[in-house]
Simulated scan of single mutants.
Amino acid sequence: MGCMMRALTRHWTTYVPLLAALILAIAWFSHPSGPVVLVLVLALAGAVLSAVQHAEVVAHRVGEPFGSLVLAVAVTVIEVGLILTLMASGGPDASSLARDTVFAAVMITCNGIVGLSLLVGAIRRRVAVFNAEGTGAALATVATLATLSLVLPTFTTSKPGPEFSGSQLAFAAVASLLLYGLFVAVQTIRHREDFLPVENADDDEPHEPPTGRAALRSLALLLIALIGVVGLAKLVSPAIETGVHAAGLPRSAVGVVIALLVLLPETLAAVRVARRDKVQISLNLALGSAMASIGLTIPAIALASIWISGPLTLGLGATQMVLLALTVVVGALTVVPGRATLLQGGVHLVLFAAFVFLAVSP
């Protein structure tokens, strides 16, 4: 019995994603409540932790910046699928779902994950060091994508309300996809060195990379775990919505909670690598996730709008635009020196706290 328990403990990252997927399949067509919701939350937490473990195996095999790109794209693709599913079944109430989810992802990654990574890195070495060229390019791309897709719809006049016309949405979709593809090419091929850690970091990973077979196995389990994370987050969202409504909070708070759950794997992965003085990889994860959230979601909903009827609200409100502008300005001032202290990390975390507070108390 003791040997069996040790084996289960050692291979928990294999069993937990499969168990989470099984629980998701069983509960998918039900309306969970009470103790069932607790089981779903526990399965969600296990899927998050196992996803982080498998993402690190894949990252160690393919190297940076490919490793952080794999996790960012995998989470975003599944998140886009969730958004489209909810939009198709949500009716008019889902008209602003894509906007709220993408904006929440940008604020969580560019302030929450960036702030935590800088804070952890600065605590360990007094100063968190990263590559200003690569990080600055990533931040500029995020700012451009966010402005084209989330700010301009508030000011365009072809269609009433904060919406794009059909041609404007098509332009935003094509521009987003091209810009994201260009960034990935620059990050992984032409200027890959700009996205690598700038100094030797503490390395507690094995020096020999995992075999190709082990990496493919971890990639498959990573995808299963991420499907479990997003699917279980969808199943617990009615309970979250009920709790938010009972607390008298606005509906937008639900989107923030769900986005936090979906981005947990990337948050934990970013903090873990920051603890090993690889702050650049943490920033790759954070800004890459923000970029993928916009660059993949906007084209997807542009295609989906062909068969999904109803309005599509993309333009941000005044409060959200102020937070986005402040995030871009503070991010630029953080990135330019190529080094950050506890202060910069604290500033980003305060901005993230302001976003969460204003989401529940607009």
Rank of each mutant, 00 (worst) to 15 (best):
L178W: 12
A128R: 02
A137N: 13
T141D: 03
C110A: 15
S176G: 07
S165R: 07
Q168H: 07
S149R: 05
L148S: 11
T144K: 11
T154L: 08
S117T: 11
A175F: 09
A172F: 00
G181Y: 06
T141E: 04
L196V: 10
T109F: 01
L152E: 02
F155A: 08
E163C: 09
T109M: 08
I189Q: 09
E133C: 03
V151S: 03
T141L: 06
F183Q: 08
R124Q: 12
C110Q: 09
A140T: 13
V114Q: 02
V198Y: 05
V186Q: 09
T141H: 00
V184H: 04
G161A: 12
T144P: 06
L150P: 03
V151Q: 04
V184R: 06
I123G: 09
V186P: 00
T147K: 08
A170L: 15
L182W: 14
A173Q: 01
P160T: 09
L145F: 05
E163N: 11
P160I: 08
K159E: 15
L177R: 05
L150M: 14
P160D: 11
A172N: 03
G134Y: 00
E163K: 10
L152C: 02
N111R: 03
G161Y: 08
L177G: 06
T156G: 09
S117Q: 07
T147M: 10
G181F: 06
N131T: 08
I123R: 14
F183G: 01
A172L: 04
S117L: 03
A122C: 08
P160M: 08
P153S: 06
E133G: 04
G166F: 07
K159V: 15
F183N: 05
S149H: 04
S149T: 15
L145V: 13
L150Y: 02
L118H: 01
